[in-house]
Simulated scan of single mutants.
Amino acid sequence: MYKKLLVPLTLIFVLMLSACGGGFKPDHKYKVDSFEFTNQNNETVTDEDLKGSIWLAQFVFTKCTTVCPPMMSNMVTLQEKLIDNNIEDYNIVSFSVDPDVDTPEELAKYLDMFSAPDESKWQMLTGYDMKTIEKIAASSFKQLVKQIPNDDQVIHGVSFGLVNQNNEVVKLYGGNEDVDYDTIVKDIKALIKEGK
């Protein structure tokens, strides 16, 4: 009698564990290239500085007339939602795709325009050449960055990249329109829990 009951109970227990213990499921594991760049405060920021925390990455530039303003606004909204959910262990990294124009001072002014609720979490990066940012975008984030000849605009990807504590890009989300804020917040919570 007990043996007959034991098999179904064990099966139910195993199924319950597998349903609960899913945890974070990455879509990718793209290793972020090593870098040493300059932020909006004229401070050096390296990939090693970001290791151990979760970060959200995007590619923008200050003279952008199309996708960057909505991306910046969407990232600010996302930060507000992270604050509402009491999430503190994260950084936001905005790589400039126009480094010749985007000095630290220009990037600081640009960030101020969007009234981010906590600018201390933002790293607006510059201090490299176009070839470097094209390579990082392609190899680390699988995104295109391409200068348009005889134009002040730059073609670039519009995804938000979620980077885990090991500096691996684990998910990419639309950052320009229809941003899935709830999923991003949920994924960040799951990654933080997994890292503890």
Rank of each mutant, 00 (worst) to 15 (best):
T132V: 07
I83K: 12
N85P: 13
P99T: 02
M130F: 07
K131I: 04
D100M: 07
A116P: 13
L111I: 11
S96D: 10
D100S: 10
E106H: 12
Q123H: 15
E88D: 15
I87F: 05
L111R: 11
K131T: 13
Y110M: 09
D100K: 06
D102M: 01
Q123K: 15
E106K: 15
I136W: 00
Q123R: 15
L107N: 08
L78V: 08
I136L: 04
G127P: 10
D100G: 13
P117A: 05
W122M: 11
L125K: 05
N91D: 13
D84W: 04
K121I: 01
M130C: 02
L111H: 09
I87H: 10
D129A: 02
V97C: 03
E134L: 00
I83H: 08
I87V: 14
D100A: 06
M124Y: 14
K109E: 15
K121R: 07
V93C: 02
L107H: 08
D84Q: 09
S120Q: 11
I136H: 01
K121W: 03
Y110E: 13
T126R: 00
V97W: 02
F95T: 08
L78E: 08
K135Q: 13
F114T: 10
V76Y: 01
D129Q: 09
M124A: 14
V97I: 06
Y110T: 11
E106D: 13
Q123L: 14
F95N: 06
L82V: 12
D98N: 09
D84N: 10
E105A: 09
S115W: 09
K121L: 03
I87L: 10
M113K: 14
P117I: 10
V93Y: 04
D129S: 05
K109S: 14
I83E: 15
E119R: 07
M130N: 14
L78H: 04
P99F: 00
L125C: 11
E80F: 03
V93M: 01
D118Q: 05
S96H: 06
P99G: 00
D89K: 10
L111S: 10
S120G: 10
A108G: 12
E134D: 10
K131V: 07
K131H: 07
P104R: 05
T132N: 02
W122N: 12
Q123P: 14
I87S: 07
E105R: 08
D102N: 03
E106T: 06
T126I: 06
L107C: 11
D112M: 12
A116W: 02
V93D: 06
K131P: 01
F95R: 02
M130L: 06
K109Q: 14
D100T: 13
A116V: 04
E119Y: 03
S115R: 09
S94F: 05
V101R: 00
D112R: 14
T77I: 14
E119K: 10
V93G: 06
K81N: 12
E88Q: 13
T132Q: 07
K121Y: 04
A108T: 13
M113T: 13
M113R: 13
P99M: 00
E80R: 07
D100H: 06
D102S: 01
N86I: 00
T103K: 02
N91I: 01
S120C: 09
V76R: 11
S120A: 13
K81T: 10
D129W: 03
K121D: 03
L82I: 12
